[in-house]
């Protein structure tokens, strides 16, 4: 008798199809979030705040209570939700532009206050929904629609290392960077998300996972080549790892 080892998570809305482009890792990331919600039994107690960008679509796919935030303000709304209802499981799902550019103030201060919430940030080094412009994590040399000859320091300055930045905040309980470039790393990514969720359940403070992800459409790459780029280019600058873990003294 065969045992089922994979299913569509219960926390995913029944019979939906993602609106993401073919090969986009948002789909994997949302599934991992859903699997963690399932495994920790959080679906019926969760409230999410989603911001602007492709990440906002979360509320069309995840079967949990959600409120939409203006661009960059998801962690302010999540703070409001958690302070009003501390017994609820509260998390945000944001892109890098949302989390680390327009919303960097909200992100940093939520971490500094040690808000007992979890933030998931998809880093695909570009503004995907608006057509692939330069964002806060665009790599040096990367060509985007607003860096047509590649990101140079003279005009654009440097990309931000988000997980390291959040790890520096005293209120952060957990900050990790993971990648979705391979199945092995996808499994590690899920463990990181689960740990971040568990840290909120333990009331340890702000927990954060940065997920290196693809945008094949705006990178003008096949999904396969896009994963090669994550591995060969992104992971050298944005090195996966655990940058803060209050329980492991990292």
């Amino acid at each position: 008798m065969a045992t089922q080892v994979f299913k569509v998570p219960d926390s995913i809305i029944k019979d939906m199809t993602y609106g993401f482009c073919p090969g986009c890792d948002h789909g994997v990331a949302i599934r991992l979030v859903a699997e963690c919600l399932d495994e920790l039994g959080l679906k019926e107690n969760a409230i999410t705040a989603t911001s602007i960008g492709c990440s906002v679509c979360l509320y069309d796919y995840l079967d949990v209570d959600s409120v939409e935030a203006p661009h960059g303000r998801a962690l302010a709304e999540a703070t409001g939700i958690k302070r009003a209802r501390p017994d609820k499981f509260v998390f945000t799902y944001q892109g890098d532009g949302d989390f680390a550019s327009i919303g960097l103030g909200e992100s940093t201060h939520a971490a500094l206050r040690g808000e007992n919430i979890t933030a998931i940030c998809i880093n695909n080094t570009t503004y995907g929904m608006t057509g692939g412009q330069l964002g806060p994590t665009t790599l040096l040399g990367q060509v985007t629609t607003t860096s047509p000859t590649g990101r140079n320091v003279e005009y654009y300055g440097y990309p931000i290392r988000i997980a390291e930045h959040i790890a520096l905040c005293e209120g952060t309980a957990y900050s990790a960077r993971v990648s979705l470039d391979s199945v092995a790393n996808i499994r590690k990514a899920k463990q990181a998300i689960k740990k971040a969720f568990e840290y909120q359940l333990k009331g340890l403070g702000f927990s954060f996972v940065e997920i290196l992800s693809t945008c094949p459409t705006n990178w003008h790459m096949t999904p396969q080549k896009a994963h090669d780029r994550v591995r060969d280019d992104m992971m050298k600058v944005f090195v996966p790892g655990v940058y803060k873990d209050v329980l492991q003294k990292v």
Binding site: V67, G72, A76, E77, A78, T79, G80, R85
Partner: peptide
């Protein structure tokens, strides 16, 4: 609940978050 927020942008959005749960905020 009381938060000394980082900006007015954050303040009003925290109110939105709290109000989404039905709280008086």
């Amino acid at each position: 609940a009381y938060v000394s927020s980082e900006s007015e942008l954050a303040s009003i959005n925290m109110v939105i978050g709290a109000c989404s749960t039905g709280a008086k905020a």
